[in-house]
């Protein structure tokens, strides 16, 4: 099958790749660009482990075609830390034990970061509904929700 040539930006790097029209953005990130931070938990939009942003909008990369990345700005979990410096959410997740196995963590961090950019002062209910598409089977969400709320509080104080 004829492959499609795509030029795009991932975590501020210019990248080019060839992909089959059926390949998803998640397939491309993982298998062609070696960015395995986004995970496939379901492939059908139900678990959020593959969360990335496309032009700043939070999406499931398993529900975007690789071909659709043309000319877009993609951001993944690999781009959250700036060099050695972790994002406050990343610090807080470690400190609060907000991960057990950690497979959901990349998606949740991408989603939570996107929430705090839109709403720096979310209520517990808002955090829970925003993250409802990010399944975590290990933690019961308690420590995740606390980590997001407390990061938000810290970031408000710092700004």
């Amino acid at each position: 099958m004829k492959k499609i040539h795509v030029t795009t930006t991932v975590n501020d790097d210019n990248v080019e790749f060839l992909c089959d029209p059926r390949e998803t953005l998640l397939d491309v990130l993982r298998d062609r660009l070696n960015l395995t931070g986004a995970k496939e938990g379901c492939g059908t939009g139900d678990c959020g482990a593959c969360s990335v942003t496309v032009d700043g909008r939070l999406v499931c990369s398993c529900l975007v075609l690789g071909a659709e990345a043309e000319g877009k700005k993609i951001a993944t979990v690999e781009g959250i830390a700036k060099g050695e410096e972790l994002h406050p959410l990343q610090h807080k997740f470690i400190e609060y034990a907000a991960l057990q196995c950690g497979i959901c963590t990349p998606g949740i961090l991408v989603a939570a970061k996107s929430l705090l950019e839109k709403n720096p002062d979310p209520t517990e209910t808002e955090v829970r509904y925003w993250l409802a598409g990010n399944l975590c089977r290990c933690t019961g969400y308690d420590k995740i929700i606390r980590a997001v709320m407390d990061t938000a509080a810290d970031m408000r104080e710092a700004s």
Binding site: G37, E40, T105
Partner: peptide
């Protein structure tokens, strides 16, 4: 912790 919050940790499919 660091590996898991940066996407560096290698799981089964990685």
């Amino acid at each position: 912790g660091l590996d898991k919050v940066t996407g560096r940790a290698r799981f089964g499919a990685d």
